[in-house]
């Protein structure tokens, strides 16, 4: 619990910024849907007529707007690892009467809390969007948000053991590794898959991802929970058996 408080204190500044991001996302989400429904909002306010945007655009844009929140909240967890290293907290941590389970567990609890905050904001923003739009029902947006949150959570779970393994070495490289994997998947799709013959392949990817997320929400949620468990066990073992020895130079 003490380390969760510490993590939250470290992230306080980021969280404060995210309050405004959340509000901004909600406002933009609603404006986006209004634009899609009635055309350019600025023109509409000046009582001018404009053509509504394509439904495909709404499909991708409005919902993705809602999904920024879990992504934003979960992406800041890695800041805790960086800050711990920068402050030299490693040696302090090892001098305290706390077990490895408590140390590693605290970071995972922080992640779950941030995922919950991000998802709550996302669901609320999704609700606002659904009120302004009849393109999507709220349950569909919820499915999309939960699915996306699970994917981002899984991403975090995948990189955490690397942080415990390398601790103070190249944290940004660790962060980029899973993104590179996604990038190569997209490249593969673009070169060898359907994307090769499609001009708007990016939109198609986003659309496919949207459909996929809503279709497999439950599976993704289960995977996120299981992935979290596996990641925690791996990080714990690294911290307990390998971490201490590997990182002696870091504390000296």
């Amino acid at each position: 619990m003490g380390f969760v408080i510490k993590d939250m204190c470290i992230l306080k500044k980021n969280l404060r910024v995210f309050v405004f991001v959340t509000i901004g996302v909600m406002v933009l989400g609603v404006l986006f849907v209004l634009s899609a429904r009635y055309g350019n909002v600025a023109d509409m306010l000046e009582e001018m007529q404009d053509e509504p945007l394509a439904q495909e655009f709404v499909l991708v844009g409005a919902v993705w707007m809602v999904l920024i929140l879990p992504l934003a909240f979960l992406s800041i967890v890695v800041e805790c690892f960086k800050q711990d290293t920068a402050a030299g907290f490693l040696k302090v941590r090892r001098s305290l009467p706390v077990s490895c389970v408590e140390v590693v567990g605290a970071r995972y609890i922080t992640t779950i809390l941030l995922a919950a905050i991000g998802l709550t904001g996302s669901l609320f923003a999704g609700f606002m969007v659904s009120l302004a739009s009849d393109f999507y029902s709220y349950p569909v947006i919820c499915q999309f948000a939960v699915g996306m949150c699970s994917v981002i959570f899984l991403y975090n779970m995948a990189i955490f053991p690397f942080y415990y393994y390398f601790e103070d070495k190249k944290p940004d490289t660790i962060l980029v590794m899973p993104l590179l994997a996604v990038y190569f998947c997209c490249m593969y799709y673009m070169i060898f898959g359907d994307g090769a013959e499609n001009d708007t392949f990016l939109w198609r990817i986003m659309e496919k991802v949207s459909q996929w997320l809503t279709k497999y929400t439950f599976l993704l949620t289960i995977l996120a929970v299981a992935g979290g468990g596996i990641s925690f066990a791996t990080s714990y073992l690294i911290e307990k058996k390998k971490g201490g020895k590997k990182n002696e130079r870091a504390v000296l």
Binding site: G2, F3, I5, K6, C9, I10, K12, K13, Q83, D84, A87, G88, F89, K91, V92
Partner: peptide
């Protein structure tokens, strides 16, 4: 060297 985070206050350290 201190080892506590620069952004934390003594009051927050107490809570931790």
């Amino acid at each position: 060297e201190m080892g506590y985070h620069d952004v934390m206050t003594p009051a927050q350290l107490n809570k931790m």
